[in-house]
Write a protein that binds this DNA or RNA. Structure first.
Lengths: 192, 192, 192, 192
DNA sequence: GATGAATGAGCCTTCATTCAT
DNA sequence: CATGAATGAAGGCTCATTCAT
């Protein structure tokens, strides 16, 4: 952690500790210590603890988005896009458990504030776009797109938890195919 | 709130405030004030703030479990049991948003601690029991039961979020049936 | 300092330390220690350090006002009123040097803020009232009353400093009479 | 502020900010920024913040002294000297409000420390010299010179405050003459 | 049982000062 | 000379917890 810049050191220390202990239970002191800098140094790079929290979340979120959209556009059908994206989601979450936890935590906090519902976020909108298009083309179930989007999200999340418990499963080709089939069956339904 | 016992008063005040402001941002003072008792009184009924948190969570969780299991046993098939349970889940969560938030928050905290994975909980085990039996009887998809259980959980959660955004939807009979169909398609797959 | 209430203890500790080290250089910790209470206790009686500062000032100011107005009304003439008041002022300031310093300090701070000019204070207005009446009755010099009031204030202050350096002087009857004569000559001028 | 030396730039920035916000509320960072230099540079010219404060005060004090003594020696009588000096004092203070505030603030701080009573200062001694000589020559009241000096000081200060509130007054010839008469009456008394 | 005054550990944040570049 | 990143001591304030009444 010595060779990267101080900003990155602090950010990574924060990810480590926030994900482990939660936002409130992690002190700036702890973060500074873990990052190997003095307490005051944190404030050279971040305006406040809130600012640090926000930047940590945004950093994680950006990584997540970028990872999840990889090669999605190469697929033509809605179902295929959703399967590909789900592979990406799980791949990313399993390889970045700390970042995943931070996103989760931050969203719970956000969901308490009326101002910015989390579903207005980029990723939600991206998925919803695919879902709406799929519904229009009759590739997907004819349900309210918001509901279908949330269901997709929920399945992805459920799968993540499932694979988290038994990491080996995700490596098995057969399992992955079963999951794809499940996605298809749930999202497309009788249309398939 | 005056006629119930002090214990209940404090518990309800805690539910109210924890769900609104989060655990760390709610002080014992706030809770005591809301409950209409003195700060010291809280410590007559709860060993510490952590203990209060835990009891609050457990209280919410118990209510949740009880509500979700209602009439589930009247169904015969695995799919029907799961549908019935899902109706209960959504019904409960929508009518108890505060309790829902507290369960959510507490699980995020718990998930950080390796000691007590949340899937060892009663509700998870109950669902898993149904799922395993369903798989055995070929009523459900032949997938690892843990995975299928998590997926079911995820769908229920997704639906909750969806209906939370548009509460009116849940009242529509057609929508509910679509949801049941979706549960069936995802959990039973080609078997159906 | 043990027998009085905590509020008074803290107030007196603050007077002691503020007058000795200044507002900014005195920490709440210092005050608590001097008062023989815990840091947190200070915040049971004062909302913040600023609040403590303000209450300390107001306490000193009230004492000052009360002391300075003693028996002033028994005098008929403006000059006599001013002399009597000046005796009171000096008497008070000499016997309450700490409180005097606090008033001084606070006014210097206040004078930096445009909002509440210190001359709108009670004591200033009281003196100005006497001065204006005196001018009207031709007992005092025909000068702008604001100016004459400030001059009176200045003389009183000067005398205080003078007597502070040589406290014995104030005890001498002759000196006191000289001072009264000086007040008369300066405030009444040729009218006398 | 660019063409003068760094030392002067910093000094002037300090005068500006100290007079506006007070000593403690002005950071070295603020001063450096206002002066257009780096924080470290301040420490090339001043040993510490305290040192800067002291030099700022001394700078203001020197200006004050120089301004106040202008043409005082042209007068023969003690009273005239005192009047002339008072004109200078007020003229200076009104035209240098920032420097005036700094002197004021610093003296309040100093007056708390027993080590260096401010009356041992040059200006005090200069006035006292005039006063003592005047008393000796029976031009002034026969009172302890220290007292009379402090009174003179007090009057000057009072006038300053008076004119500060109504700057227009100081321009009126008649007012100025009234002030001179007042000085004469107070300092010389029946001797005049 | 009930109270709330008192405590003090611990948090976030600021800022004078240093020093390698 | 000049810089500004880095430091860490210190301060204001909050709050979980205790305990005498």
């Amino acid at each position: 952690m010595e060779e990267t810049g101080k900003y990155q050191q602090i950010l990574e220390a924060a990810i480590e500790l926030f994900s482990e202990r939660g936002f409130e239970s992690t002190s700036i002191q702890d973060i500074a210590q873990w990052a190997g800098v003095a307490k005051g140094t944190v404030y050279l790079y971040f305006k406040s603890k809130d600012d640090l929290m926000k930047q940590v979340y945004e950093y994680c979120y950006e990584m997540d988005i970028k990872a999840c959209e990889k090669e999605v556009d190469q697929e033509k059908n809605a179902v295929d896009k959703l399967c590909r994206r789900m592979d990406n989601i799980i791949e990313y979450l399993l390889s970045h458990p700390k970042e995943a936890r931070i996103e989760q935590m931050y969203r719970v906090v956000l969901s308490g504030k009326k101002t910015l519902p989390y579903y207005q976020e980029e990723m939600y909108q991206a998925i919803r776009g695919v879902v709406e298009e799929g519904i229009e083309k009759k590739e997907l179930r004819d349900m309210p797109s918001s509901l279908l989007t949330q269901i997709y999200y929920g399945i992805a999340n459920g799968l993540y938890h499932g694979f988290q418990d038994q990491p080996g499963l995700w490596e098995e080709r057969e399992i992955k195919e079963q999951c794809h089939q499940l996605i298809k069956d749930s999202m497309a339904g009788r249309n398939s």
